[in-house]
Nucleic acid binder design. Structure first.
Lengths: 209, 209
DNA sequence: ACCTGAACACCGTTCAAGT
DNA sequence: ACCTGAACACCGTTCAAGT
């Protein structure tokens, strides 16, 4: 019903994707919509509201149907979709960390994870903690990739050179593996496997005391 | 040797702690130091360099000696110190996610985790992945707390009210546990226990094939 | 080497005015 | 209801000038 609001959020997304989140300003978005900056205020309520609206838009992108497969596949699906979202919109993970996700679509995503954990057999009282653990890790991984914290093997090689040899004993011992390029797809998959292992442990630990 | 640089970074830290990271501007920091904005440039190289310098300052705070105890305690120590850092400086975790940590102190922190994982018996080729997994989770947890993503029980209660009943089946099933207040210290400790369990699995899985 | 001052091209937001 | 235009109090950074 609020056609203009969607138009504004689409424009903001486009500016962020093309020029980075720092260039998302009331003025830049307004210009793209073809209107004066002040015309945005009734629709998004200011800069903070604009960013919240962008987050909501993203979360809706994340919530395709996906009711297929067992809990292992469903968890992996959601995780991989989150990662791809972060690759399409590198500015997004930081925003998701910063703004408490009370948007309706965020709650729906959380509900999907709750249901998945219950299906896996995690005791009800442990489900909220596991949801936070899984979503925190996935978001953290995606943010690290998008923000450049992981930086690839070059970083590891480059930084070793800048410090005195004896200062980094463990780096020296691992040199052989630190110089190899990292397969991030495989690493993310391995991390997810480890998380699934924890979920299984939580499930069996309770149902067979 | 660069006395002025330390003075500038201290001033920036103080502004961030007192008024938030958004109010850290060249102009505000310069005024606190008692100098013109342009006088900062030779020492920090611009806004980006100022933020990098702040990150370096934080990481140094993180690197007390702490060579006591076995690998379990050492990992917990570093994790808890990171969490406390995020509570003292709520703007910090977001910065750590955004800027690739090539500062010398960041590499030293990574080396400490490498050494801990090797001591735990993790195969050398798996150590870099586990380091990224652990640090990503810890940083993600701290960022979620500091940024308000976890938001406490009130959020969970508040958001359920705003959606149609049948829309959140898992929330409904978990209502009893979602209404209880969360003990974040205990949750962080439980998450760390789970991570330690994964590390043990990686260690025994290889040494006893 | 270190700092100043003026200037440029930007910000978010308020407020009064238009239609 | 929706939008404009001018104004206010801010930004980061360049550039020429001082000592």
């Amino acid at each position: 019903v609020d056609d203009r609001r969607q138009e504004i959020l689409d424009a903001a997304l486009a500016v962020a994707d093309e020029h980075g989140i720092d260039r998302v300003s009331m003025r830049a978005v307004a210009e793209r919509v073809g209107v004066t900056p002040m015309a945005l205020y009734p629709h998004v309520g200011g800069k903070a509201g604009l960013l919240d609206g962008m987050v909501g838009h993203l979360l809706a992108e994340l919530l395709e149907p996906a009711d297929t497969g067992d809990w292992r596949e469903r968890l992996g699906e959601l995780a991989h979709r989150t990662r791809k979202l972060g690759q399409r919109h590198p500015w997004a993970p930081a925003l998701l960390f910063a703004r408490p996700s009370v948007a309706p679509d965020a709650v729906r995503a959380v509900d999907q994870i709750y249901a998945t954990l219950l299906e896996a057999g995690v005791p009800a009282e442990d489900v909220p903690r596991f949801e936070r653990m899984v979503s925190t890790f996935v978001l953290g991984f995606v943010a690290s990739e998008a923000g450049g914290r992981f930086g690839g093997g070059e970083v590891s090689r480059g930084r070793r050179g800048r410090l005195p040899e004896g200062d980094l004993p463990a780096h020296a011992a691992l040199a052989r593996w630190l110089d190899a390029p990292v397969d991030w797809d495989a690493e993310f998959a391995a991390d997810l496997d480890d998380l699934r292992r924890l979920i299984e442990l939580a499930a069996t630990g309770r149902s067979q005391p």
